[in-house]
């Protein structure tokens, strides 16, 4: 019987088209839900910038802290930029996948159409990328207005932050698609991302950490994002170091995407 099976051509429009349709669907859904997320994605980071960067920073600067010649605001703003991207990216990776597979099951609806699982994931990550782009540009513009950036290279910092955010979005999508309840996600946000936010060089130089913790912080993706953003913001880019940061973040994005595709295939094509 299979011998009779004619090979059919794939449906006319290509993969890129179908991924774009998934992106368009995400955007349409966002139009209905953006109010609920506007504080967490725009206002909170800016409050942080104000309270920690400007107000606390003033105290820190008066103590004459050694931050490689930067004021505390100049030091912390690019760190907050990367950390904001981490939070946005992690959220965009985790919760839409939970909703799509379990809460609303919209991914199951998509799985019955010609859309393939990698196209679905590409659309979801493209949407995360777009949200990250808007979030980081807005944040960077506010930081620039406060005088946090000293180099024109700072214009590239949002791009670095977007990469950092995606390096969280893809692995969290993989986790979301693999776990059986959102409890695991809550755990990750509380016990992995929050400590990372506090300890990965966002607020103080890594050398201030206890010796044993320093190499751990070095290994976190957030530190690579922070270091990349900070070097751009200050116009002090070491090409080799930047290459390591970008490579690390890209590798994490790729690994996350591969694992997420597999986990989604397992859920949607069982």
């Amino acid at each position: 019987m299979t011998a009779l099976a004619a090979r059919a051509p794939a449906p006319a429009p290509g993969s890129l088209y179908r991924a774009a349709m998934v992106l368009a669907w995400n955007a349409r859904t966002y139009r209905r839900t953006w109010r609920a997320t506007v504080t967490i994605s725009f206002l909170n980071p800016i409050f942080f910038l104000l309270s920690v960067g400007v107000l606390l920073g003033d105290l820190v600067d008066r103590r004459g802290a050694d931050l490689g010649g930067l004021s505390y605001l100049e030091f912390v703003a690019p760190g907050l930029l990367a950390a904001t991207a981490m939070q946005l990216g992690a959220g965009e990776g985790a919760f839409p996948v939970m909703a799509g597979l379990r809460w609303v099951r919209s991914y199951h609806a998509i799985a019955a159409t010609p859309v393939r699982v990698p196209e679905l994931l590409a659309g979801v990550l493209a949407w995360a990328c777009l949200r990250l782009a808007v979030g980081t540009v807005v944040f960077a513009a506010v930081a620039a207005a406060f005088g946090a950036f000293t180099s024109p290279l700072a214009a590239l910092a949002p791009a670095a932050a977007v990469l950092c955010g995606l390096a969280f979005a893809a692995p969290l999508a993989a986790v979301s698609a693999s776990v059986d309840s959102s409890l695991a996600l809550t755990g990750i946000f509380r016990f992995v991302l929050l400590p990372m936010f506090l300890l990965s060089g966002t607020f103080f130089p890594l050398e201030r950490l206890p010796g044993w913790l320093e190499p751990v912080a070095w290994a976190t993706p957030l530190w690579h994002g922070v270091a990349l953003c900070r070097s751009l913001a200050a116009g002090d880019v070491d090409a080799a170091a930047a290459l390591v940061h970008v490579g690390y973040l890209l590798a994490l994005l790729a690994l996350g995407a591969v694992l997420a595709t597999r986990a989604l295939e397992r859920r949607l094509r069982q």
Binding site: A5, A6, R7, A10, A112, T113
Partner: peptide
């Protein structure tokens, strides 16, 4: 007349 294992998207279309 198509095999779902090979032509899933074309069938789902």
């Amino acid at each position: 007349g198509l095999d779902p294992a090979a032509d899933g998207p074309a069938i789902r279309q």
